[in-house]
Write a protein that binds this DNA or RNA. Sequence first.
DNA 1: TTGCTATCAGTAATGATTATCAATATTTTT
DNA 2: AAAAATATTGATAATCATTACTGATAGCAA
Lengths: 165, 165
Amino acid sequence: MKPNRTTTKPRMTEQRKIVLSAVRKIRRHPTVDEVYTHVRRRLPRISLATVYRNLELLAAQGLIRQVDFARPQQRYDHRLHDHYHIRCVQCGRVDDVPIDPFSALEYDAKCCGDYRVLGHRLEFYGVCPTCQKRKDNRPPRTQKASPRLVSARVKTVNNRREGAE
Amino acid sequence: MKPNRTTTKPRMTEQRKIVLSAVRKIRRHPTVDEVYTHVRRRLPRISLATVYRNLELLAAQGLIRQVDFARPQQRYDHRLHDHYHIRCVQCGRVDDVPIDPFSALEYDAKCCGDYRVLGHRLEFYGVCPTCQKRKDNRPPRTQKASPRLVSARVKTVNNRREGAE
DNA sequence: TTGCTATCAGTAATGATTATCAATATTTTT
DNA sequence: AAAAATATTGATAATCATTACTGATAGCAA
Ligand SMILES: [Mn+2]
Ligand SMILES: [Mn+2]
Ligand SMILES: [Zn+2]
Ligand SMILES: [Zn+2]
């Protein structure tokens, strides 16, 4: 097959370079906003969107890593005992992992800093059986939230229009 | 001191009971929306806000647990090797935990389901040294984001008012 | 009953992230 | 180099989960 013509390698732009160096300089696991603030010292006109874009791209390239998981929606568990979870990176499904929790780890962590350690969470990630079956690797994306409040009564205020329909 | 007069025990209301039983029935780590949808079959007029409130309260009481961590903002890491983190439950600060990663864990996880295991994350939580010093336990909350875009030029469109001020 | 608080439904506001889009910048082709 | 193709940017709007607010009820104690 011919080499995909619509795909080219990402360029290492000035903005991208500076965003990368910011993450490296700040060190302590910065949030997007912290990166943004830092970068603006050198590029006062950079857009926040550009920071988001470049962070995502740099992470995709493996030049930086995302610390957090489990983004858009919070999940709840009816099981109260300590146990671990595995999350499907494709669809977001979460299942239990029945291996014994080790409290020794918390002890180990003590030696690292002056934190008072309260506990730990261990989460595996992978591809769930359902998503493995699906041949194509189109992102099924985390299921959308249920449509909001299709209540019987409909609001009738302020429904005048400005433009056309 | 006199017993705090403004504080009373939470009541186990009908809504709360049903939210709890929903989390227990759904089993597979439901999102708030899934709980909401489920509960509405029995309480069609319940508010989504009530579901949020009760889930939070039930979790605070230890009747259910939150699965996820690291909520409002994503964080980035300049260190590419596998390592673990510890997060302050008070201020959200994140630090590295310099203990060796257990690659055996992923092997252990394999035996649980049909997931294809890709990796794991281990996160400790506790109270950082800074937050330990602070005597009061007022929630310092995760630091607010930097004020957005106080650009030189100001938008002048559509600043007409409707009511009064 | 009378006050007091908890809780509710409904809805607005918040805030992080994404999407969109016209304008530039860089690379590739001619 | 000029033209065409593609990538990237800044600005801003849209999304969407969550939180905050509000006025109305409900349960409980004096
Ligand atoms: Mn679980
Ligand atoms: Mn780290
Ligand atoms: Zn899946
Ligand atoms: Zn702290």
